[in-house]
Structure formats: structure tokens, C-alpha cells
Write a protein that binds this DNA or RNA. Sequence first.
DNA 1: AATATCACG
DNA 2: ACGTACGTGATATTA
Length: 888
Amino acid sequence: MEKLILIDGNSIIYRAFFAMPPLTNSKGLHTNAVYGFTNMLLRLIQEEKPSHILVAFDAGKETFRHEGYKDYKGGREKTPHELSEQFPLMRELLESFGIAWFELSGYEADDIIGTISKKGEESGRQVLIVTGDKDMLQVVSDNVKVALTRKGISEVEPYGPKEIEERYGLRPEQIIDLKGLMGDTSDNIPGVPGIGEKTALKLLHQYGSVEEVLAHTDEMKGKMKENLVNHAEDARMSKKLATIFYEVPVERSWEDMAFAGVQEDKAAPMLHRLEFKSLLERLDFTVGTAGEATSDSNVQSLTEVDVTIVDTATLPELKELLPQIEMMYVESYGDNPHHAIAMGMTLSTPERHFFVPFDFLKSKEAEVIVAWLGDASVPKRGYDLHRADLVLHWLGITLAGEEHDVQLAAYLLDPTDNNQTTSGLAAKYKLPIIASDEEVYGKGAKFKVPDQEILSKHLARKAQLLLQIMELQRNELEKNEMNRLFYELEMPLSRILADMEKQGVAVNRDDLIQLGKEFESQIAKLMKQIYEIAGLEFNLNSPKQLGEVLFDKLGMPVMKKTKTGYSTDAEVLEKLAPYHEIVQYILDYRQLAKLQSTYVEGLLKEISPITGKVHTYYRQTIAATGRLSSQFPNLQNIPIRMEEGRKIRKVFVPSEEGWFILAADYSQIELRVLAHISEDEGLQEAFLHDLDIHTKTAMDVFGVSADQVDSNMRRSAKAVNFGIVYGISDYGLSQNLNITRKEAAQFIEKYFQAFGGVRRYMDDIVLEAKRDGYVKTLLERRRYLPEINASNFNIRSFAERTAMNTPIQGTAADIIKLAMVLMDEALKKQGLKSRMLLQVHDELVFEVPPEEMDIMSKLVPEIMGQALPLSVPLKAEVSSGLNWYEAK
DNA sequence: AATATCACG
DNA sequence: ACGTACGTGATATTA
């Protein structure tokens, strides 16, 4: 049977434009959309081998749809000129490829395609429509399929009647009823307010069509009924607008649309003009002539890979090669690795790739693989092994022996690189490009686990690249003197973190609920008072509405603006508090609302029904300074500064009867680190004598003796110390202390006079950053600062402050990470039952059985204090109790 | 998806 | 003269 492909040119070229990075030829001509379109076209030709092709375009501004509804497609952004200039190029390219195209003033591409597809079907041809527009689904039939583009244009999802039934539970012709009810913002089709896809489908499943729905509104109630009655006409019109017109006078014959393959003599000059070198190279001009074999054409941009799917039959081959496996990759989806769904695993030697389906891995016969995974004496190389460990753990499988994690190494080599994906790293190292995960899986709601065929190949391609990347990383780590940091600190730490996360922290659910009730009643009281005083009810959580009440209605002075309107943050509200009693209530409300939503409700949602604990996920490859971060839930920002919030800590309890929570935190670790690296004598002296550092700073800055330092002076000195650590600026300090910039500048000058070594450090580190392009910590952790020489003052200043702060914050991070590794060793060596549960940047939290309280109270601060010998002592203070609140 | 706000070190 | 303190993550609202 002959096959006809109909392409919605506008839809595809738009998607190509936004999906592709900007691309211009040497003359400055934008070509990215044409490139994306062409790539897709060639792939279609190769895969579908069509006998006929036609590309339809929209023409002119006004179509017959505007006659009934002048706002049709209103509110759309104007087409960027970078795109509009590509339309003529696209038409030329189609002509050079011998592909027919058609447009007709007054009609949309949809209508042209609909018309031709009907004719194609009637003449006994198979039809495939390629578009990004779901409206097109209405023309689907047994012989007409619609391929919808997914995530850009790299992949399409074919829809026949069966797929529409599965996805929507509708017949193709009901798609217009769906649009009629839900509307379409992109075309400015109104639909019925309050009815989205969910509701629309429910109604259609019950009544079948817009007309039937409208005829039965008497059976409904509430807002929905009201909306349907009031907007019945909108619904009817919307349906009409979405309905394809099948009578377009198309001036193309079958002969015009026949496609006989791309001819080199015609196509090559055009491709040259566009400078599509890769396409020229890849095209061998034998592609796609109807019915002809397309043997060795490599239109496909991806390299071929061979993967062996591991099953009963192929297991012996893998078994044989297990000792030679050099790369493992576990794919899963879901942001939270504790709940992630495993998709598949690849095990690779440099020559061969094995794909292990998880169903098989769980079977009895696969236990040889499970044993291999759990054998700590077998070094594992992989990508994001931390995540792999957790995913496998919740499947009951142990992973051990992690030696090289490519993601973690990539983070160390450039912690600010936010594309540590395999395809991103491949690009960085100029290795062959592979499809990104987003291209293969889609993102957000479009995410879909692909067929095993596609998945296994994608993973194999990743593994292939990862093997190469790993070798390059080994060299680079060596060159950067980061071997110790990587192999002795970060790699062992990644195991420890995974173990802490699996262990989790017990949370007393009932107490948390009780606390929530107390917050709730206070919140209700505050809301009532606020609404009463304001004289109206509004959404207190909306800064916009709050701003209107405060500034427009009550006429309070505007202190600060955000880019969208009035600022109502705590700093502003505190200044406004004297003007009106309502402000304090709002501040109190804000505080409680935060506690309730984030810490009560948020935490409750994270308690595992399986373990009754929260299992956070420490991310080791995020923070630019080398710190950890914590997610799902974030256990590094549990309230402590305010008593109300601090109560949250009471619900974090030991997981075993009679045990205790023990917490130890470093005292002034950042300033001690600063004392060490700046070699400032005064600062070192202060820590050698274990002075109160803020008081000491106040003495020097204000030139007074210890007993003359009042609380206000100490507060200022503390702010100066913070400023120093952050990379000081007079403006920042003045904001913090609510003083003038001049006064702040004087403080800073005084500070530098007293601590000359610190001034020298600040100056030197900025020069070092300008010279090397990066700064580093004591353990050789790097952070590149490409903006350190920027001409823009703001950008440059930011980089300079970062240069000052990163070695301090980063070295502190190095130290506590070292302490964690040493602590883990000590616990194991001494056979202690105590468990490390949490890390909060300068604090470690443990759960400890009663008989180990004495030893742990000594051991923990000792190990933390000796983790990295500095020129000043490191001090860790320990405390304990029945819960985290008491361990303060 | 972006913005505002606020919790922590 | 320039205008921000350093590093994170979660929530609710709004576009």
C-alpha cells in the first residue's frame, strides 16, 4: 500500500525552533529551525519510506475562523524574526528535496492536511500526519494515523484509534468536543471556564458530545453547571473553531506529491548554502526512494550499538564476562531516589553491553548478578552510584565496592557545571553526541519509559561514553591533585551518605500532628483578627493581595518594591510594625504559616509508611562550595532560631527504645578556617586562647577592653565577622546592621587594621582567582570563577566575594566531610551500635544506645576536632537528649 | 515555570 | 558611580 506523509509545516518548524539551540551559518543566517526540521524529515523518510509527501503551511493572517471569532489565535507572541526568516529557506529546501508543499490564503495547515488525508484514505492509501497539534487527532481512522511530536521534535508518538481510546477514552471525532469544553489557550479558544481536561473527559465519557452535555445541565449542580449554562455558546463556538474543514481547494495532485528520494544534484547546493555539513556528510543520497532498501544510509544521527538483553538464554555470556565489567548504569525515574522507579541496568565491558531488566534481576537465576553487585571487593564504576545504591536498596539489592562515580568526579572537576548528565559531559569532552535523557524520555507530564529496545540502546550508548569519560577524568583528577579528595573523601562519603539515608530518622508522628493542631488554632485566630482589622477577607498568602491591603487600602508607606509590585517581606513588615497593629499579626501569621505548611504538613508527607521515618536525600554534587544539600525533606533547615519553630525538633527522636539523640557542632568553624588560611596572628591568637571571637572582634574594632564590650557592640562585631566570611562589602554590612554605608566602611577599615592578615588574604585570594581562574580549598577542591575579570562591576564584584568566601566555606565543608569518614570508620572499628543520622553543615547528629553515651560523648568531638589539623584548634561541642530539641 | 518568601548553616 | 552580603530547599501564588 502506498504511504502518504502529511506534515504540518508551521507546527514542526515552530517546535524545531524552540527545541534547537540558536544556530547560524557563516553569513549570520539563522538556520536552527530548518536544521531541526530537516533532520526530522530525513528520519521520517528513512523510517516510514513514504511514496508521497506534502508539507502544509498556514498562509495569511486571516482565516475563515476569524470571521466567526475575531480573537482566534489572539494574544499570541509575534513570531521572532529569527524564525520568520527561516520560512522561505524551509520552502526552498523542500523544493530542493523534491518534496511538495502547499499553502492557501484563508486556510490553516490543519484544514489542508485534513482535506488531503480524507482523499488519501479514499484512494486506498495509508496516511501518516506529523504535527505537534493535538487537534489533528480528530481525523484519525484505521488508515490515518497522527504522529504527535514529543519534547521538541526528536521523537514522535503515533496515535491511531486505539491510542486515542487508551489516552482519552474517546473516539477520534470526539476530540473536537474535548476542545469545545476545555478550550485551548494557545489558539485563544475559550472553552468553558473551570473545565480542564479532567472535567471535560468526565463529561464526555458520560454524555458523548458538547451538545449532549449542554442538553443535560439540569442533571448537574454547583459552579460547573453555572459555567456550562452561561458559556454554552462559547462551548459550541469553541467546538466549531476546533473542527477541521475538509473542503479546501487543494491544488496538488498525487503526482505532485509523489516522492522519489532526495537527489544529490538538487539538494547538495542548498545544504551547502545552509552549511549543514553534518547532513551533507551523513546523507548518501540513496535514502528513502519508495520501497527501496535503505541499507547503509546513516541519516540516523546516533551511532549503532549492540546490546545483549540479559535473560535465561544470555545469562551465561554475562556470567563469563562479569570479571571484565567496567561500567554500570542504573536508570530510574522520579526525583526522590527513595521512591524512584527502576527502569533498567546496563553492565558493560569496553566491548560489550548487557541490559539487565529489573524483572529478571529479581528472579532466582539472576542471583549471580546480585552477588556481584553486593561484592565489596569488586570495584564498581558507574554514574550516580549514590542514587543507584538507593534504588537497588529499596528493591532489596545491595550495592558495594563503589570506586569511581563519573557524576561525582564531574562535580569535583567543575562544581558549577550544571549539566553533569552523560550527554552534557560528552559534549564537554567533545565525544560523540548522544540523545539527552529528555529527548529519549520526555520531561514532566510527557515522561514515558520507552520500549526496551530504545531504552537498552540509550543506556548502552551512555555506558560507552561513560567509559571514555572516566578515563579522561582520571587524568584530570590526577593533574589537579584531586585524587585524595575524590578517592579518599568523596567516594567513601557517598557510601556513608547512602547508608545514613537508608537508616533514616524516626519522627514522632502523633506529636507532630498535635503540634500542627496547636499551630492551626493560632493561625485561625490570627487570620480572624487580621481580616477584622483590614475590614475584608483576602488571601493572606498572596503577597500581591497583602500589598494591596497594606499599601493601597491602609496607605502605609512603601519601603521597598519587587519587580512585580510591593515588597511585603519580613524586613519591610518589621519597619511597618510601628504604623499599624495589623503588621505584627501578619508577621506572626507568616511565621506560623511557614511552620505549618513546610514543617508540619511537609514533614508528615515525607514520613515513610514502611519505616515510619524520614529518609532525606543528601546531594553531593550540587553546592558550588562543596557543601552537601538535603532534599525530600530538607533536614538542613529545620527551625532553631525561634522557639516556636524550634519545637519542631522535638519530633525527631531515636528509632530505638531507650536510645538518645546526640548532636555535636563545630564552634566557629569558618572563622577558625579563616584564621588558618589567612595566617592572621590576632585571629589565631584568639582561637588559641579560645576567646569569644565576637567579643574579641568588638574589642579590636571599637578599641575597648573586654569588660567595655556591650551587647550592641558584640552584635555589630558578629555582623562584621559574618561579612568577612561572605566576602565583605560596606553596602552589605550597612544593610545588615541598618547603618549607613559610611559607618559600615569605617567598621570594615577598623577590622582590617586589627586583622591585617585577613586583609592580605582577601587581597591575595582575589588576585589568585584572577590569575588562575579558580580558587581552591585546603583539600584542593576547586571552584572556577570565569566572571572574575568581567568588565561589569556587579558581576566582577560578585565573583570577587565568591573568591573570598569559597575557600572558607569549602574548607569547612571538607573538614566535616573528613570527620564523617573518620567517624564512620571509628564506629565500625569499635563495633559501636551508634548511628550517624544527619549532617547540617557544621553539625553531626547521631542516635546512641544508653551504654554508648559516655564513649560517644567523648569520641565524636574528638574525631571532629582532629579531622584536619590546622594552625588553630578545631572545637566541637556535644550535647544530647531524648530528641533533637533537647540535644542543643 | 517564574516569583516571593522564609527556613537553615 | 555601580548596588549585594555566601551557600542551600520548600511552599504558595501567579502568569
